[in-house]
């Protein structure tokens, strides 16, 4: 058999086997994002949680369904968290009345420190206290700040690790607040 013939055979076999392999691994197209498991990755429903705010009231993430949510994990000792707070506050003031919620999740600090921080930076968006770090573990938070952009159906659309500037925040907001 000549080289060209041998190669033609390889080509045909690759075409047939490759096509069959793709056809064999097709997926149903009617699976919606909300039917996926709740894991903290883009394209999946945001895992639900309940935490207390500094006033001692419970806040459920599922209670915010129907609104676009910017879920921001932070701590007062984290410089980049502090630096991006004015941008988050501005977004909350600008779009809060039209269905955008900025929800800060403080990592394991006492209420007094959190309140001082909020007052110092004049932050008015809602904040909850993750004092046992169970929500941070649920969301696999390994560095601060980390921000999840959750759409009105409760689906995570974007995850940003690290400090956001105004442009990046605006860009990511488009995915949940068109």
């Amino acid at each position: 058999m000549t080289t060209k013939r041998r190669f033609s055979l390889i080509l045909i076999l690759t075409f047939l086997l490759g096509g069959w392999w793709i056809w064999q691994h097709r997926l149903p197209t009617d699976i919606t994002a909300s039917a996926r498991p709740a894991i903290p990755r883009a394209g999946n429903p945001a895992p639900d949680f309940t935490l207390l705010n500094p006033a001692g009231n419970e806040v459920h993430l599922s209670g915010l369904k129907g609104q676009a949510v910017v879920l921001n994990f932070w701590a007062s000792w984290c410089g980049p968290c502090r630096a991006e707070m004015p941008e988050l506050q501005q977004a909350y003031q600008q779009f809060g009345k039209n269905g955008l919620v900025v929800l800060g999740v403080n990592q394991g600090e006492p209420v007094s420190i959190v309140n001082d921080f909020l007052a110092q930076l004049q932050l008015t968006f809602p904040v909850v206290l993750d004092q046992q770090l169970q929500v941070s573990q649920l969301y696999h938070i390994n560095s601060l700040p980390t921000t999840f952009f959750i759409d009105r159906d409760g689906i995570i659309r974007e995850v940003v690790i690290g400090q956001m500037n105004a442009a990046l925040l605006k860009e990511r907001l488009r995915s949940i607040y068109p």
Partner: peptide, 23 residues
């Protein structure tokens, strides 16, 4: 990124140097 979000960068020029690789 600056060209696409020029108004945001104009109001905060220092953020041009933001270390976040997502920008």
């Amino acid at each position: 990124h600056i060209l696409l979000f020029f108004p945001a960068y104009r109001s905060d020029p220092i953020s041009i140097l933001s270390p976040n690789l997502a920008a």
